[in-house]
Every structure is written in structure tokens, then in C-alpha cells.
């Protein structure tokens, strides 16, 4: 039923001058080829060329900026290394300076102390000398007065007068003994 309708339709269509032909018509071949050729040339010049260039340019730009970024990064790392090295150097230098000044201070201190010690020793020695001299002086005075006193004491005790010369000998002798005792 439906099939007959289609058959009639096909016939009716061919009666109306329609033909679903698989024979290509010249009226369509050359305009389509011509249209394609014109479109190809126009698009090549005005569309695909610029767009492909733009794609190329974009990928170039991206690659360049990536390379640049890489370079900048390397540069920054290098600078950082530099600064670190400089910092370490400066730190070492500062430590050296501190050490040096400490040494200088130390040596100055030592020097001052040594000088002070020397001076003190000198003062003490002088003081000692002075004391010694005083002592000797006092001793000599004492010897003199002790001799006179002893002669008079001994004369009174013994009651006999000894000659001046014998006295002197005796006194000298005892004094020497006393002096040697005193020395010890």
C-alpha cells in the first residue's frame, strides 16, 4: 500500500521533470569548483594565513616568555648565591675584626698590668731600701749610746777603773757580738 504510493511518487516526480540523477550536471560542476577555488584563495590570503601566523606567533611568544622566565629565575638564583657568599664573607670578616680587637685589648691589658706590677715592685723596693737605711742609722746610733751606757754601767758595777784603751777594746768586742746577734 505504502509501497505503491512511493512508486507513484517516483513516477509523478519524474513526470514533473525531477530526476534524482547520479549523473552530475555540468551546471553544478564548474560553479562549485570555481567557488572552491575562489574561497580557497581568499581564505588563504585573508583568514588562514593570518590565523596560522597568529598561532605561530602565540606559541613563539609563550616559548620566549618561558625561556625568559627560566633565565630570570637562573639570574635570581645566581644573585642569591652571590649575596649569600657576600654575607658569609662579611660575617667572617666581622668575626675576624672582633677577634683582632679582642686580642689587642688583651695585650693592652697585659701590658698595663705588667707595667703596674713593675711600678709596684719598684715602689716596694724603694720603700724597703728606705726602711733599711733608717734601720741602719738607728742601729748605729743605738750602738753609740749603748757603748757609752755600758761603760758607765760596767765601771760602776766592777768599781775598778779600766784604762780607756782597755775599755774601748772590750766594748768593741761586745758590740760586735751584740751586732752579730742583732744581725741574726
Amino acid at each position: 500500500m505504502l509501497f505503491e504510493e512511493f512508486a507513484y511518487a517516483a513516477e509523478a516526480a519524474s513526470d514533473q521533470g525531477a530526476s534524482i540523477s547520479i549523473i552530475p550536471s555540468l551546471a553544478e560542476i564548474w560553479p562549485s569548483l570555481f567557488a572552491f577555488a575562489v574561497l580557497f584563495l581568499l581564505l588563504k590570503k585573508f583568514a588562514f594565513g593570518p590565523i596560522l601566523n597568529m598561532l605561530q606567533k602565540r606559541s613563539d611568544t609563550i616559548r620566549e616568555s618561558l625561556e625568559k622566565a627560566e633565565e630570570t629565575k637562573l639570574e635570581a638564583e645566581r644573585l642569591l648565591e652571590d649575596y649569600k657568599a657576600q654575607l658569609a664573607e662579611a660575617r667572617a670578616e666581622a668575626a675576624g675584626l672582633a677577634e683582632q680587637s679582642r686580642k689587642i685589648a688583651e695585650s693592652m691589658k697585659d701590658e698595663i698590668v705588667a707595667q703596674a706590677n713593675e711600678e709596684a715592685a719598684l715602689i716596694i723596693a724603694r720603700a724597703r731600701e728606705a726602711v733599711e737605711a733608717e734601720k741602719k742609722l738607728a742601729m748605729a746610733e743605738l750602738q753609740g749610746s749603748v757603748a757609752a751606757l755600758s761603760v758607765s754601767v760596767a765601771g760602776k758595777l766592777i768599781g775598778e777603773k779600766l784604762s780607756e784603751a782597755d775599755h774601748a777594746k772590750l766594748i768593741e768586742k761586745y758590740l760586735a757580738e751584740v751586732g752579730s746577734f742583732n744581725d741574726n
Binding site: 505504502l2 504510493e5 512511493f6 517516483a10 509523478a12 516526480a13 514533473q16 525531477a18 534524482i20 540523477s21
Partner: peptide, 17 residues
């Protein structure tokens, strides 16, 4: 389904060169 063949014919006609 009256009129189908005419309509189909005109469709075929429309799609032909």
C-alpha cells in the same frame, strides 16, 4: 493516506536539481 504520493513527489521535486 490520501495525498501522500503528490506530497512525496513535490518533495522529491524540491530536492532535485
Amino acid at each position: 493516506m490520501e495525498g501522500l504520493s503528490e506530497k512525496l513527489a513535490s518533495k522529491l521535486h524540491k530536492y532535485s536539481v
